[in-house]
């Protein structure tokens, strides 16, 4: 039901790697390490600044893909991959967008399901790609039926 959305992009959205958000996120994953949250440790590090944990891009706004009307409930997260050119620095501005890479429907023992592949990207203010976040989302038959009804 989302085949038509393959290749579609969202609008780009400006995000900031906010110090408070990084602190809260690091705490929520039980990883309040000085490299993430202590300003002095950040300055003294090879990065010259605090960095964000690798799964922090979960927090960013990636814009909307009009052709992709996902339900709010019932989605299953199957797989997640991050590729980085370098760690994210606290305070920097990142432009994020997302694209539908693929959509397929498969029939298995628990009925048919949709497999959606999304790729989020983050660029610095010079337009250099900093990270890609690939996500595989499984949409069960029950959820798809609910949407069509």
């Amino acid at each position: 039901m989302f085949e038509h959305a393959i290749g579609e992009f969202s609008n780009k959205v400006k995000n900031v790697v906010e110090r408070g958000a990084v602190r809260k996120f690091a705490d929520a994953i039980g990883d309040s390490h000085p490299i993430f949250i202590d300003e002095e440790a950040g300055k003294a590090s090879r990065y010259g600044e605090n960095i964000a944990p690798p799964t922090f891009p979960r927090v960013f706004d990636y814009g909307e893909i009009p052709a992709l009307n996902l339900p709010e409930k019932g989605l299953i997260h199957g797989e997640q991959t991050y590729h980085y050119e370098r760690p994210l620095l606290v305070g920097e501005e990142i432009a994020c967008y997302t694209q539908v890479k693929d959509y397929k429907e498969k029939t298995g023992k628990s009925g048919s399901m949709g497999i959606l592949k999304l790729e989020g990207c983050g660029e610095d203010t010079d337009g250099n790609l900093i990270f890609r976040a690939e996500q595989v989302v499984i949409i069960t038959e029950a959820v798809r039926k609910g949407m069509e009804a």
Binding site: E79, T81, Y82
Partner: peptide, 9 residues
């Protein structure tokens, strides 16, 4: 740094 981090749930 972690360049690639791939997980299956």
């Amino acid at each position: 740094y972690i360049e690639t981090y791939n997980i299956r749930f």
